[in-house]
Design a protein around this nucleic acid. Sequence first.
DNA 1: GAGTTTGAAACT
DNA 2: CAGTTTCAAACTC
Length: 623
Amino acid sequence: MDTPQKSVTQIGTPVSKLKVEDSPVFNYICSLSPIKTLKSIPITQTLSSLNFTSPPSVFTSPHAVSHKESRFRSQKDGSASKEVASIGEEGNEEALVENSEPAQSHKNDCNTPRVSNDVRGNGCCEDSGKDLQKMMDNVKKKSDTPDWETLISATTELIYGSPRESEAFSCLLKKTSNSEARLRGGTMPTSKPVSNTNVGNNESESVDALSILHRGVRRRCLDFEIPGNNQQTVGESSSSCVVPSIGLHLNAVAMPSKDNNVANEYSFSVNMKVGLQSSTTPLLQSQHDSVRENETGKDASKVIEVVPKSSGLVELTPISPKKKRRKSEQSGEGGSSCKRCNCKKSKCLKLYCECFAAGVYCIEPCSCIDCFNKPIHEDVVLATRKQIESRNPLAFAPKVIRNSDSIIEVGEDASKTPASARHKRGCNCKKSNCLKKYCECYQGGVGCSINCRCEGCKNAFGRKDGSLFEQDEENETSGKSGTMKKQQNVELFIPAAQPSTPMPIRQPLAQLPLSSNNRLLPPQSHFHHGAIGSSSSGIYNIRKPDMSLLSHSRIETITEDIDDDMSENLIHSPIANINSLSPNSKRVSLAHLDSSESSPWRRTGGRNLIRSFPTFPSLTPHH
DNA sequence: GAGTTTGAAACT
DNA sequence: CAGTTTCAAACTC
């Protein structure tokens, strides 16, 4: 919460305010037409908007940044909508507000109520300067909303040169759900009118789209994620996708099973991107939701919808707690579900909470009680997190880590142990024989190792004693140690016992660049683990990495898919050249990127290459 | 859906 | 560091 304030403060600087207020044009415009207004206000705002996106903040605290933006956005949204309303009919205003709420609101307390209130509370046109300021104030109070819009607005501002314009634009976008509008929008005039019109008519449609977006973003309430969305929205329809914040995706990715890491990484990457880069959205889409893509017929709408979904959210649709769980079980395995917790006593501030452990905020689908793992309580979350980390620096680190060796192995010898990925601390199973998800190793799709203190280990992914799979087990005689490792089966792998259904081919793999995982396909969850960055990279904040974990922190996602879309997008880590095998055992080559490369996202021949930023950007040593 | 089992996390 | 308790997910019925 603190960090956001900074930005807020910046934004709220008197200077901008004065300018805005002073501008005669502004007043005039406000009262009359949004369009003009847009033109009237200039640079000042732009600057402030820029501030929001400013990279520094991002680095400082991804979370915070996102917050800022998100908040800002909500404000803007509110103001924008209000503006429209005021301009138009008052009656509509209410309607707008109402509509807007749904988008933002969540069942959970996450943010919703406030937003709506704020929106209503803000007067819009009266004084844009004041308005802005109010927004800032409100922002502080508000929780967070993810915000694409913020990004968009920022972007648009840049483009348009005036906050108002951008605002109008964003509004338009929202309403229309059409990115193209933006393009045309060069002329803002249309924008407001459009919005008004929409208000009365298409509102629901546009609102829905927006809501979807919002939800997607908020789902996890990960700030980082939002930015990406925004961008997407903004840039979107055009081929240039917005740079999405990976965060979104992460969430999505993360969800399936426990994979905090993933989420973290994404978020991180998001931060990096906050600056508004071009996006990779497609990736997301492809990764998680190629399916969904089909749903929307229109590009623009498509974009919008897709984003959220990919972001993780799956959960656009509210789900009852129970379903939640089930869903997580099911979809989770599929790899596309989100994390949802069901905490009752931990307030979601302990590692018991999957969301917290994963470095993500609890969201709507969570059925937790007295949840503090929300943007609103950011400070608490961060503090708790620190505390836990102080106790155990690796608490939020990926649970599954790859051996440094693995890299080498990957490139050269597929044959090596599948187990190159191992659980950080090892399990301590006594009764489950490491054959159930109670076992973290099993759940993570990795074999047990020396670190494990399990009894009667029968881990299908590799037993403590060194045997690889259950098959071995069954074959017990042959199974024992190392011989088996060599088989390529491993690569293709999927333990017979594997609980989860085979990963969809198209399913993206988030993997640790280093690990041999690339070759292995663990049960669904596997990829999560691999992918996952530690919380350290986390959503909540970025901190210096554990060197030991760094390698993991990067994500490599490769989508290989049957679906064209999917296949086209690749996310990979900058770290090293890695040849990874898809589940199919197809080889997916990752271009090796240097971490140094400025832009994470790359397009190659029409294919989108998305690179995730290293969790720890500069730090990545990797070996 | 309720209850049980399990093992990690937290606590002492 | 070991033992115990707490917790929530995983699992069973």
